[in-house]
Design a protein around this nucleic acid. Structure first.
Length: 321
DNA sequence: ATGCACTCTCTTCACGTGCT
DNA sequence: AGCACGTGAAGAGAGTGCAT
């Protein structure tokens, strides 16, 4: 037989590793044989084959006892881990136990969603799975990252992805307009005239121009003055608080930011289409217990936060939840 | 699919060796 | 002397490769 480092797995009788584990833990051929249900002679022969396989005596006599060689000492933990993994591979995937599980999930979502979802999600994770940690990244190439296996789950605007990823709708959102209190040209209500007259700060995470709002305005033959384009949703309210700029943004975040920065949140002067958010994941993670737990938790948190649907449109006032 | 030869592993048995 | 490991021979059983 060849030395181990020159062979492939197929050339090795993996049952020998079971014998080896018994030998290394018992340090006694007869007891190892009893443990694995072989005769002493067969176990001794197996030890011979293992010695040839490893090119190392593995167990050497010291008086009446057998002691491990340094190679065998180093081998034992690897052997234990490997056989344990093999057993798990045969027995099947163990259930995910959130109460005791130690692992880190990587989630991808824009800063808007981070601001809205992360707080409640972290509280839910901490409560159900105290040893689970999160990495949250704002990746422009979300779907590629998920497909490449770099992310467990991604959240983004529904209907945007055209790939083969699995997806599930989470919640809908509307638009809201933010202006500072005491804005000189915008009174209680936001009219189309004052909307078009204002300077706008637009959030374009991908850096691209044009948005759903501009498309709707263009359909009516209208155009707004986009005086500032930023890539981060959390910058917009600061600009609005310190200038006479106006920002049109997702309502759920907008209302939250209006409270934080002392801004006014007003309904848009024209009907804008509602949009939704969904979570995306790779097909290969569909049945993985830990992934299923994570998706169920995100769904649950989204449901508790927003319900499945917003109230009917045509609201004339916008309030914080 | 079947039969045959070959290989491998295990078992039993016997015996040698080293240690207490 | 007794115990435990190592080695070898012989036979049984299972798996494999190959020819038919």
């Amino acid at each position: 037989m060849q030395m181990l480092h020159e062979t492939s797995l197929s050339a090795v009788d993996l049952n020998l590793l079971v014998v080896l584990r018994a030998l290394l833990t018992e340090r006694h051929v007869t007891r190892a044989a009893e443990r694995i249900g072989l005769s002493q002679s067969a176990t001794s022969h197996a030890l011979s084959r293992l010695r040839e396989l490893y090119g190392d005596p593995l167990l050497v006599r010291r008086g009446r006892a057998l002691v491990l060689t340094p190679r065998a000492e180093r081998l034992l933990p690897t052997l234990e881990r490997g056989l344990s993994d093999l057993k798990a591979a045969i027995d099947g995937e163990p259930e995910f136990e959130p109460g005791t599980a130690r692992r880190r999930f990587t989630l991808g979502m824009a800063d808007y969603l981070q601001a809205v979802v992360l707080g409640p999600l972290l509280r839910a994770v901490q409560s159900a799975a105290p040893h689970v940690d999160l990495n949250v990244v704002s990746a422009p190439d979300l779907e590629e990252q998920i497909a490449a296996g770099n992310m467990d789950l991604g959240l983004q605007v529904s209907g945007r992805h055209a790939g083969t990823l699995q997806n599930q709708s989470l919640f809908d959102d509307d638009f809201v307009c933010l202006v500072r209190r005491g804005h000189p040209r915008i009174a209680k209500r936001l009219t189309i005239q004052s909307y078009l007259a204002a300077r706008h700060v637009v959030v374009a995470p991908s850096g691209t121009s044009g948005s759903l709002v501009d498309t709707e305005l263009a359909a009516r033959g209208l155009e707004r003055r986009v005086a500032l384009r930023v890539s981060n949703f959390l910058v917009a309210p600061i600009v609005v608080a310190e200038t006479d700029f106006l920002s049109t943004m997702p309502q759920r975040l907008g209302v939250k930011l209006a409270e934080r920065y002392g801004l006014r949140a007003l309904p848009p002067p024209i009907e804008l289409p509602r949009f939704g958010f969904a979570m995306l994941w790779h097909q290969r993670l569909e049945l993985e217990p830990a992934q299923r737990w994570l998706r169920e938790l995100v769904t649950e948190v989204s449901g508790e936060l927003f319900g499945s649907k917003l109230p009917p449109k045509k609201r004339r006032s916008v309030s914080a939840r």
